[in-house]
Design a protein around this nucleic acid. Sequence first.
DNA 1: CTATATATGTACCGAGTGGTACGGATATAG
DNA 2: CTATATCCGTACCACTCGGTACATATATAG
Lengths: 211, 211
Amino acid sequence: MYSDSTKKMKTGREAVQKGRPREFDAEMALDKALHVFWERGYEGTSLTDLTEAMGISRPSLYAAFGNKEELFRRALDRYAEKGPGSVHAEALAEPTARKVVEHLLRSVASSVTDPCHPAGCLAVQGALTCSSAADSVKQELTKRRLEGEENLRRRFERAKAEGDLSPQCSPESLACYVITVTQGMSVQASGGASRADLLAVVDLALKAWPV
Amino acid sequence: MYSDSTKKMKTGREAVQKGRPREFDAEMALDKALHVFWERGYEGTSLTDLTEAMGISRPSLYAAFGNKEELFRRALDRYAEKGPGSVHAEALAEPTARKVVEHLLRSVASSVTDPCHPAGCLAVQGALTCSSAADSVKQELTKRRLEGEENLRRRFERAKAEGDLSPQCSPESLACYVITVTQGMSVQASGGASRADLLAVVDLALKAWPV
DNA sequence: CTATATATGTACCGAGTGGTACGGATATAG
DNA sequence: CTATATCCGTACCACTCGGTACATATATAG
């Protein structure tokens, strides 16, 4: 999934590599790691879970990805760029605020219930709570969620400037509302909600319009 | 918090106890445990975190509460009955469907941002994801969340029968929508959203009315 | 060929996990 | 008093955690 033409994973490596070549596909291994983190969360995933899913040994994992936390961040980047995280950017490109919201909510409803991958959204499931040892991961996820909300708010501000949104509408509150619904859908999906359930939720959420 | 007149924690104990009396207050210790689980989740909380917060030794904890999972379930019961979980029952008692939803959403917005206790809702934060070892806890939380949604759905069915809700309204979808918003607010609160933020979200969520 | 660089598999490390054995302390029952 | 029941604190258990040392295998550079 999310195939990519990039061959070398490590940053800024020269064209011709010396030494013994890697025997596994780092992109595929990263996808496997993403899948496990997505399902069990950062702390719920053990190194053994990872190496078994990725089909590589511990030293290979550390050589290729640094450590558990760096691997998680790589998985998170991949999720954001090539995975469901990319629906945010797509939605923001819609011509009107209303269409942005429709696109975003429907895409999220579909994505969090997609049987091809674990239920929910990695940014929510990854580490909603954790031990103190994993606080940095939790903060990173919080930051990313806030960034998504900020981007949406800015899109609404633009819409307001364009007359696409009424003057008494608060872009901040509207963005918070929409993101709240998406995060709630992530929890619902992890609890077994179906795609039809969530699409009905989206229809109700959209009844808040016009805002 | 949530003071209770019950003195004996163990089930069905006779009035006069023999042996050395317990030196700690089991109710208070349970509240402390609840607080830690609430903040770090089931697996993010270690036995050491618990015993330090409760001010008791490991063997005392095991003698009084069985084991970590039983302690968690006790904390969950306490949360549901004496803590924020009780707002569900209160909300259901409102005379109209609309007022039920208003009450529930506003109460949750306040509760998940209450500075007196950890952010969010225990049923969401407790174990949204976990290792395979804690699957039973995750399932228990999922079950409790679903029960809350079922109760709300039944309340809406009653409202529909009473003519309080329009005939084309789906009680199931409406309940799913409302619970989705509450769960989203739990995630938002754990990400630092303020009470004002969430009350604005509630106002927008209520604009879906009339349903 | 040799030298160098990287990857791999085994086998291990210290620390932390949930959980408990056991002996001594403190209450009631008789 | 003794007997019994419960609690408490120390000190420990087996197990898993994330992470690594080291020897070996396999590639390129010269």
